[in-house]
C-alpha cells in the first residue's frame, strides 16, 4: 500500500534558504505520526512545505498519491489542489475566520452541500454545538482550537497536518483534544502528521515519531519504543540541559 504522504530527501525553507535538509518521512493510512523537536528545528517549515504554502526547495514530495514537481512557482495552485483532494492543514495560528460564526467556519471547511460532514465534525466536539452561532473571535483559546480541528474534519480529510495543537492551551484541554485526533485516525483511516511541543502528550497517541534537530532527523522510531527509552529522547531533544522531571 502506498503511503498518503512521503518525503524523500526534501529540503525546505524560506526565500530559497533551506532550514530543513534531506528529510525522509512517510505517513500511512490510519497512522498518527508525531514530528517533534525544539524551537526552530524546522517542524512548521516542513508542514508549510507539504501543503504548498512554501515552495519545496529540493527532493521528492508525494502527497495523496500525486508527485509534486512544481518547483518554486505556482505553489498557490498546489495548495488549492491538495486541499480539494483531501489534505487538511491546521496551521499554528489556526487561520480561523473571527468575523464569521463557528457554524459558518465549519460550513466553509466542508465540501459544497456536505452538511452531514459538518454534523459529524460537531459530534466529535459537543462543546461546539452550543457555540455554533457565536463569532469565532469570541471563543476561548481552547474552543478556537477545537473549532480549527472540527473545521479540518468537516472536509473529510484523508491526510491531516496539525501544527502545535497544545500551544497556549491548558493541559486539560490538550488531554481532551489529543485522543480525538487518535480517534480520527482510527475511525476514518486518515493519516495524521502532528507537530507538537509537549513530548509526553504526543508520544501517548502517536504510532511513530520523528525528532528534528537543527533541520535534520535526529531520531526516528516507534512511539512505544521511545516511551520506554525516555533517556534517548531527552538526550537528543533537550540537548545538554539537565532533565527536571
Amino acid at each position: 500500500m502506498n503511503p498518503l504522504l512521503s518525503l524523500s530527501g526534501v529540503d525546505a525553507g524560506y526565500d530559497g534558504v533551506p532550514v530543513v535538509y534531506d528529510l525522509d518521512l512517510t505517513v500511512g493510512e490510519g497512522e498518527v505520526v508525531a514530528l517533534l523537536g525544539s524551537n526552530g528545528a524546522g517542524k512548521t517549515t516542513t508542514l508549510l512545505t507539504i501543503s504548498g504554502l512554501l515552495p519545496r526547495l529540493g527532493g521528492e514530495l508525494t502527497v495523496l498519491g500525486a508527485g509534486v514537481s512544481d518547483g518554486r512557482h505556482r505553489t498557490e495552485r498546489r495548495t488549492l489542489d491538495l486541499a480539494r483532494r483531501g489534505l487538511a492543514h491546521v496551521p499554528e495560528d489556526r487561520a480561523l475566520f473571527f468575523e464569521l460564526t463557528a457554524g459558518e467556519n465549519l460550513r466553509l471547511g466542508a465540501q459544497r452541500g456536505d452538511d452531514e460532514a459538518v454534523e459529524t465534525a460537531l459530534e466529535s466536539f459537543p462543546r461546539l454545538h452550543e457555540l455554533s452561532h457565536r463569532n469565532a473571535g469570541l471563543l476561548s483559546g481552547g474552543e478556537q482550537q477545537m473549532l480549527a480541528l472540527a473545521r479540518a474534519l468537516a472536509g473529510r480529510p484523508r491526510l491531516l497536518l496539525i501544527d502545535e495543537m497544545s500551544l497556549g492551551l491548558a493541559p486539560i484541554v490538550v488531554e481532551q483534544l489529543l485522543p480525538t485526533v487518535r480517534a480520527i485516525a482510527d475511525d476514518t483511516g486518515a493519516g495524521v502528521l502532528l507537530v507538537e511541543q509537549q513530548v509526553p502528550a504526543a508520544l501517548a497517541i502517536a504510532d511513530r515519531v520523528y525528532v528534528l534537530r537543527r533541520g535534520r532527523v535526529a531520531i526516528e522510531g516507534n512511539a512505544s519504543d521511545l516511551r520506554r527509552r525516555r533517556d534517548l529522547l531527552e538526550a537528543s531533544y533537550l540537548g545538554d540541559i539537565d532533565e527536571d522531571k
Binding site: 504554502l53 495548495t79 486541499a83 475566520f97 464569521l100
Partner: peptide, 9 residues
C-alpha cells in the same frame, strides 16, 4: 480576513 485560511480549505 484570512487569505491563507480560505486557501487551505
Amino acid at each position: 480576513e484570512n487569505e491563507k485560511g480560505v486557501l487551505l480549505l
